[in-house]
Amino acid sequence: MGNSASSRYLEIAEALRQSILDGEYPIGARLPSESDLAAHWSASRGTVRQAVGLLASEGLIGSRQGARRVVLRQERRHSFQQLNSFAQWARAMGSEVASRILTRTTRPATAEETARLDIAPGSEVLDVLRLRHLDGEPVLVERTAYTDWVAPAVRALPEDCVSIMDSIAAEAGIVAHYGEHLIDALAAGSEDARLLRVRRGSPLLRQRYLTYTAAGRPIEWTDDRYRAGTVAFSVSNSAAAAPLERHAAPGVAGH
């Protein structure tokens, strides 16, 4: 019985989340009162309060206590079907995006960067640390290694450049045509926690990806870390297409 009761609020939260996503409760609308939701779901007020609290923690609805909560936004979903920049995706979602380059450092490539970027051992890369905001909240820390032929274009960009990908395409003709993505989760270290305003050890969604030009020349190897609850990634596949691969994490090597 305990497991059934404890999962009940997750079931209610998922149904409400889907209703928000489907537009049944558009941005600015108020959810039914806790008592109305409890009656609809034949659940206790406490169970409904847990479900509503979960959506509030995800930022979908207002966090102020009250009989009815306002829908703040719909879920942010980032699809891999198109290789769009973060800024292009955010604008398409109707979100305001801001970015700041915190550091730009030339250093020797790590063993993983050497392999991913197909460069000679001992080659230098431009290491860029960047913090990105959506609608005024810090959601993403980017750590990117750019190959030496891309580095001058990235060095020339202003600190508040909204999209490095879009800018180097427009100004230097360096266009990303292909991407390979790896997704996992990890705990926030002290630097991530400080930048994203979360507690150390908080869960982060990590996306690492490699981009190439149309000719197959590697451009960047990026380690992106998202604050939990800010972005969902969507993948569409079919039995007729190449299957989605799932790999075991390689332990904690390198982290």
Score class of each variant (00 low, 15 high):
Ala232Gln: 09
His78Ile: 06
Asp148Phe: 02
Val125Tyr: 04
Gly179Arg: 00
Asn3Met: 08
Arg217Asn: 03
Val235Leu: 14
Glu124Lys: 11
Glu34Gly: 15
Val162Arg: 08
Arg155Ala: 10
Arg8Phe: 10
Leu117Arg: 08
Asp22Arg: 15
Arg225Tyr: 05
Asp224Val: 00
Leu21Cys: 08
Asp224Cys: 07
Ala120Asn: 09
Val97Ala: 14
Arg77Glu: 14
Leu195Phe: 14
Ser95Asn: 10
Ala228Gly: 02
Ala92Glu: 15
Gln88Gly: 05
Arg225Ala: 14
Gly2Pro: 00
Ser44Pro: 01
Leu182Arg: 09
Thr106Gln: 08
Val70Leu: 05
Ser236Lys: 12
Ser57Gly: 11
Leu102Glu: 12
Gly94Trp: 01
Val198His: 12
Ser7Trp: 07
Gly229Lys: 05
Arg69Glu: 10
Val48Lys: 06
Glu191Thr: 15
Ser123His: 06
Gly59Ala: 01
Gly53Val: 04
Trp221Phe: 11
Thr213His: 06
Ala215Thr: 10
Gly2Asn: 05
Ala188Pro: 09
Ser202Arg: 10
Ile119Cys: 10
Pro152Thr: 12
Ala193Arg: 13
Ala228Tyr: 10
Leu182Met: 06
Glu11Asp: 13
Gly28Cys: 00
Val52Arg: 09
Ile219Phe: 00
Leu72Ile: 03
Trp89Cys: 04
Ala115Tyr: 03
Ala239Ile: 12
Pro121Ser: 11
Asp148His: 13
Gly189Thr: 15
Gly2Arg: 12
Ile174Ala: 06
Ile12Val: 13
His78Arg: 12
Ile183Pro: 01
Leu10Cys: 08
Ala15Thr: 15
Pro138Gly: 10
Ser79Phe: 03
Ser33Ala: 15
Ser33Asp: 09
Gly216Arg: 10
Glu112Thr: 13
Ser6Met: 09
Ala241Cys: 04
Ile61His: 08
Asp22Tyr: 03
Ala153Tyr: 11
Glu58Asn: 00
Val139Leu: 08
Arg225Met: 12
Gly201Ala: 09
Gly201Arg: 05
Thr103Ser: 15
Ala214Asn: 07
Ala193Tyr: 09
Ser35Cys: 08
Arg8His: 13
Leu196Asp: 14
Ala67Phe: 04
Leu134Glu: 10
Gly53Phe: 02
Asn237Ile: 04
Gly251Tyr: 03
Glu112Phe: 04
Gly53Trp: 04
Ala176Phe: 00
Leu37Lys: 02
Asn84Arg: 07
Ser190Ala: 15
His247Pro: 01
Arg100Tyr: 08
Gly201Pro: 06
Thr110Cys: 11
Ala145Val: 07
Ala98Gln: 14
Asp127Ala: 13
Val70Asp: 08
Ile101Cys: 07
Pro203Ser: 05
Arg91Asn: 11
Ala111Val: 14
Gln65Ser: 15
Ala240Gly: 15
Arg91Ser: 09
Arg17Cys: 05
Gln82Gly: 06
Ile27Trp: 00
Ser44Gln: 01
Thr144Tyr: 01
Glu159Lys: 08
Phe80Asn: 07
Glu58Cys: 01
Gly94Met: 04
Ala240Lys: 12
Ser95Cys: 12
Ala172Trp: 02
